[in-house]
Every structure is written in structure tokens, then in C-alpha cells.
Simulated assay, not measured.
Amino acid sequence: MAPRVVVVEADGGSRGNPGPAGYGAVVRDPASGEVLAERSESIGTATNNVAEYQGLIAGLSAAAEVGAAEVDVRMDSKLVVEQMCGRWQIKHPGLRPLAAQAAGLVGRFAAVRFEWIPRERNRHADALANAAMDAAAGRPAAQPAPATVAAPAATNTGTDPATAPPSWEPRPSFTATRLILVRHGETIYTEQRRYSGRGDVPLSERGRAQIRATATRVAALAPSVAAVVSSPLSRCTATAAAIAGALGDPPVRTDDDLIECDFGAWEGRTFAEVRDQWPGEMDAWLASTRVAPPGGESFTAVAERSRRAVTGLLGAYPGETVVVVSHVSPIKLVLRDALAAGDGFLHRLFLDAAGISVLDLWPDGGVAVRTVNDTAHLPGT
């Protein structure tokens, strides 16, 4: 009979951070301590945190395979435990697809509990990870020590991959999730240079012509698409429907996290009107992403839900291509994070209506921005 509750011990590390990396995971019966499953694998060149997440994913997958209903996860990675519990933000975009994959596995169980434990209590998984790192480095792999014998500690500093040296290495062992980011077509507010946030302003005649051209362009870029995901506002859903039609009608769904920033009292007003009536508030808003327009939403808040949307997409469609139809602010914030840029980026990047940007995210933490604001397909450009 399958155990109702199991313990998963997981670890990962790299020799160099990034460097030759691997993970280990053990599934145990909590009453007897019997090992029900082991997982260990070299993952090439990666960071400590990427390897730790891969260990967690392997452990949860093994727990599902043995038929567990509940899981007690024990890891000596404070970062992974705190992020999976939601107490720490996942700031580096390279870890978000891994966290999303882990969250998807968590959803398969009736309950999953996370606990941080010191390294000495995680010896078995640590030894498996070390053996995998040896294999990644081309060294003869030692046999993993049993849980009762102390094994060498993995090289694991807990460093965030944002501080790791950048790499241009190809990633033949992984498949990227590709996000094709599309801004909706023009509306009358776009043409009149008005703040257009939560107001459901429809596409203009020019906007409808734009989305037809955009649909053709997206179909040429990605003949196979897993889904089209859109902001719920009609200027986006109309754009999404045109793109889906050109692609052979893949699934289309909406995500409230992709909606435009709430501009509050500025909604529907021209840029000049806002500058004239709220000069101090506008200066403060431009100076800090934490400041919201009167009665509106800050870019910091928009960034949080944009990240949540991307994390959800990576968990739902790993290794696939997804078209994301949204607005200026969410798309800018996704690109800012992908490029590891500062807030000044938001005021320097211009995104045209119906422009296309392309972003690849790999499960080992790699990020590549392929295209930003492609408008060559638009009439009159």
C-alpha cells in the first residue's frame, strides 16, 4: 500500500557557482526511516540555487511516483524553503520557472510542508548531490554515503544567481519556455495620448488593422503555440482572438494579473492634462515605482502581479511557446526583470501598439530577450 505521508530530503550544489552542478533527493517513510526512492543527476553548469530547486523538483516527483498523499520536505537551503513558503520574493527571473514547476508538483498533493534543516541532518541527499557534482565535473563518482555516515558537504553558499557571473553558454540539455509578448492594438486613447488603464476602451479602426497584421506575424514566428493568454480587457482579448485565429485556434484564456496599471484619477486624461493638474504627484510618480497615481496603483504592485503571471505560465507550459497579450506597463516590467535593468528602463523603453517582444526562459536559470518592440509587420511603419 502506498504511504500516505513521506519525507523528502533534497539538496543541490555546484563547484564554482556557477560550475559543474548536480542534485540529490531521498524519499523516506517517516515512521521507519526506510528509503523509498532516491534521485541524483548531474545538470551541467548551473548555480547552487538552480541545483537546489532541481533537487526539490526531483524529490517531489519521486514522492508522487510512490503514491504519497502528503509530503514533508526537508532542505538545508534557506532560500528555497522560504521562497516556496512565500515568505521571500523570487527576485531572480531565472529561478521563477523552477519555482513554478515545483509549485505545480506541490499542487498534486493534499498537503506539502517545508522545513529548513541544518546540513548535518541532510547527509544522504547531500552525498547524492556531491556524487552528481563529481560526475558533472568529470571526476570518478564516489558511492553516496548512507544516512548514518557523515558525507562531505556540498559546495553551497546559498548565493542568489543574480550575483553569479553571466554566461553565454548554449543549453543543449534544456528547452526554453518562449513568451511572445504582444501589446494590444491602438484605441482612441492611444491616438489621443491619454492614460488608458482599467477603462475598457475598444480597439480603433487602425487598431483592428494592426491586430490582423500582428496575427500574421505571430503565426510566422511561432507556428506551434501552446496557448494565448490575455489581459481581460477587450482591447487585449480582441487582439488575442485575432492571433489565435491565425494560429489555428489554440486555447485562449485570460489572466487578471496581465491587466494594465490602474491610473486612478488620471484615467482617460491626456498626458498634458495630468502634468498641468497634478505636477507634484506626477513628478513623484516618475521618480519612484512605489508611488501610485491618486487613487491608482504603483508600478511596484504591477510588477508583483506581472511576475506572478509569468511564474504561472512557466509552471503551466514548461518548454512550450505561449503568446501573452497585455499592456504597456506589464510588458515593460517583464522586460525590465528579464534584462536585470533598473527602474529608469521603464521611462526609456517605448512600446508601440501591436508591437511584439520575445523572451526565452530556461529551467536552469538562463534568460534571453530575443526581440523588443518589433513593429516591422505593422501598416505604415
Rank of each mutant, 00 (worst) to 15 (best):
V302H: 01
S298M: 07
E297Y: 02
E304D: 14
P279Y: 07
D283T: 06
R308G: 15
T289K: 08
V302C: 05
P293T: 00
G295N: 10
A301R: 06
Y317M: 09
P293W: 01
R308L: 12
R290C: 10
S298F: 06
R275W: 06
A301P: 11
V302K: 04
T300G: 03
R305F: 13
R308C: 13
G296Q: 01
G315L: 09
P318M: 14
W285R: 02
G295E: 04
S306H: 07
L314C: 15
E304L: 10
E297D: 04
M282K: 08
S306W: 13
T289C: 09
T311Y: 01
P279V: 12
S288P: 04
G295A: 03
Q277F: 07
R305D: 12
G296W: 07
P279N: 09
P318L: 14
L286M: 13
D276A: 15
A292S: 12
R308H: 14
A316Y: 04
V310L: 06
W278E: 11
A292D: 10
R290H: 06
L313S: 03
A284E: 12
A287T: 09
E273R: 00
E304R: 04
W278V: 08
P318N: 10
W278H: 13
T311S: 15
T300N: 02
Y317V: 04
M282S: 05
Y317R: 03
T311A: 15
D276M: 07
V291K: 00
A287C: 05
P294E: 06
G312T: 12
P318A: 13
A292I: 13
S298N: 04
A292E: 08
A284F: 06
V274D: 09
T311Q: 14
P294S: 03
G296M: 08
S298K: 05
R307A: 08
L314G: 05
L314Y: 15
G315W: 10
T289M: 10
A303Q: 11
M282I: 10
V291W: 07
A303I: 03
A287I: 13
T289R: 15
E281D: 12
E297V: 11
R290S: 14
G280Y: 01
P318F: 14
W285N: 01
A284R: 11
V302G: 02
A287Y: 00
P293I: 03
S298R: 01
V310Q: 02
E281M: 02
E273V: 08
S298T: 03
M282E: 09
V274W: 01
V310A: 05
A292W: 07
P318H: 14
M282H: 10
S288Q: 04
L286S: 07
E304G: 04
R308T: 10
L314M: 11
W285Q: 00
A303N: 08
E273K: 00
T311F: 03
A316P: 15
P294R: 01
R308S: 15
R305P: 13
P318E: 14
M282N: 09
D283K: 14
T311E: 15
A292M: 08
L314K: 03
L314E: 12
E304W: 00
V310H: 01
L313D: 03
Q277Y: 06
